[in-house]
């Protein structure tokens, strides 16, 4: 279930080294490798596609500018850390101008983007949409540090070591944050289910 360590290995190191010498093409190969994950993390933190796009763009630009400060380790964790910071910047920016309440956007986005696959029953599709919205809202209710830990671990499948690098905390902190985040999510989902009287999959 959990993704193995970066498979690119040596290739990635070479790309990073080339990018650090100012090779844009090499850096862009790294972007191609991680943009999906970075964008997804930003979206899960922010719950809004436009904001996630801005955060991701900002993150990769910042990453290129700050590449000289990358001192080895997991590049993925490093770029995800920048993405996380950019996402929080966006979040604070949005909170300062609450013209678009994030809660409203969540459901809208979920409905519009969760495309129904052909073999899926319409009812299942609806249920999946609702579950996605509930999960997103539940994550939004978590404290920031727990939220990002949960996203990196359960949504993106990073291991504890990488999460520790990406969030700049110790393994023990990752462990306890994740434990608390999961427990809260579990309670949130259960409460939501009772509220709706719904016989969902959970």
């Amino acid at each position: 279930m959990r993704q193995s360590e970066t498979t690119q290995g040596r290739d990635e190191d070479q790309l990073v080294a080339a990018a650090q010498r100012g090779d844009v093409d090499a850096y862009n190969q790294l972007v191609l490798l991680y943009q999906q994950m970075a964008y997804n993390v930003a979206y899960r933190v922010l719950g809004n596609q436009d904001a996630a796009m801005d955060a991701t763009q900002d993150a990769f630009l910042r990453g290129f500018k700050g590449l000289s400060r990358f001192r080895g380790g997991s590049f993925r964790a490093w770029i995800l850390r920048i993405t996380t910071n950019c996402s929080y910047d966006q979040l604070r920016y949005k909170q300062r101008r609450p013209s678009t309440p994030i809660d409203d956007l969540v459901e809208e986005d979920e409905h519009s983007t969760l495309l129904q696959s052909e073999e899926e029953e319409p009812e299942d599709h609806l249920q999946r949409q609702e579950l996605g919205a509930v999960l997103q809202k539940g994550m939004q209710s978590l404290p920031e540090d727990q939220r990002i830990t949960l996203i990196l671990s359960d949504v993106e499948g990073l291991n504890y070591e990488e999460i520790a690098q990406a969030t700049m905390v110790s393994l023990g902190t990752v462990k306890s944050r994740l434990s608390r985040a999961r427990a809260k999510m579990r309670d949130y989902i259960q409460a939501q289910r009772e509220l709706d009287g719904d016989q969902g999959r959970l």
């Binding site: 972007v31 763009q57 996605g132 949960l150 499948g157």
Partner: peptide, 16 residues
């Protein structure tokens, strides 16, 4: 359930 959350489709490439 969290791991089954769909990946958001990329709106565009973020290549520099």
């Amino acid at each position: 359930a969290l791991s089954e959350l769909p990946r958001m489709p990329l709106p565009r490439s973020f290549a520099i």
